[in-house]
Amino acid sequence: MGMNQDIEALNERIAKESAFVERIYAEVGKVIVGQKYLIERLLIGLLADGHLLLEGVPGLAKTLAVKTLADVVRTGFHRLQFTPDLLPADLVGTMIYDEREKTFYAKKGPIFSNLILADEINRAPAKVQSALLEAMQERQVTLGEETHKLDEPFLVMATQNPIEQEGTYPLPEAQVDRFMLKLKVGYPSRDEELQILRRMTKGAQPQVEPVVTPAEILSARAAVRDLYMDEKIENYIVDLVLATRDPKRYGFSDLEGMIEYGASPRATICLTLAAKSYAFLRGRGYVTPEDVRSIGMDVLRHRVIVTYEAEAEEKTSEQLVQQILDHMEVP
């Protein structure tokens, strides 16, 4: 009975804490047509304190989505276009010499904001990518001898263009692992395309109002971590991750020899937090297997490295992850 009361209290708390979610959807919906998948994952990134890597062709409202989210959350926003001639200092900032004071002072770069859109991250050389990824991981930047903490909430959404790979610098696997989610965004449906046409080509552009404060987001983060996760769900998550490392042991004999490297323990942490955030967005105080399955692909697709044999058979990491998600017994 005590357990029932605990979960009821938790459900009430989560329902209260997550009340802003519907307001965000409504406000963002004034500007963005469709893209619920993208908006939802952005919120998961905010709630779970993770970063997003997004793959999609140009023109899918990626920038608009992040900008609109920054507006409704009343936070700072910066868009960084990555190019081959970009330098780390262009990103994190540098020390400037003050002639009058005869001292150096820190000139903070555009990374000192809350929501960062790192557009076409694979067009900048490795040293710039490293500077961004280090800041993402450490949540701080060192300029000269001084370390500056980045503001909270801090979320980076990096994009990669799946076309035009000429002259790009693909992110190393170890660095890709630092993104909590990798999203694949597709084209809108016909109805959505029609709505986009009507909304964006007539009259004034719709404006959004801030409906949530950064403090509310930080409070929601604490609530997400307090969500109840049953042992069965924990085991389910661990089984999913371990199945990517040793598929044969979990009955996926046909995947043997297909996976070079499976998902890391960081994937386990990310999948847990992302599933909790997914449940939070639905106003629930506990996690179900459906939450894990729904977000599983976005957490695992970039963390499973296929072998040469799999590539020869034209198997992608997504296909392998999907097979595991589809056939792993649900608790």
Partner: peptide, 10 residues
């Protein structure tokens, strides 16, 4: 049953 299994309710 999900409620009992995953939310820990009786």
């Amino acid at each position: 049953c999900d409620l009992a299994k995953f939310a820990g309710t009786s």
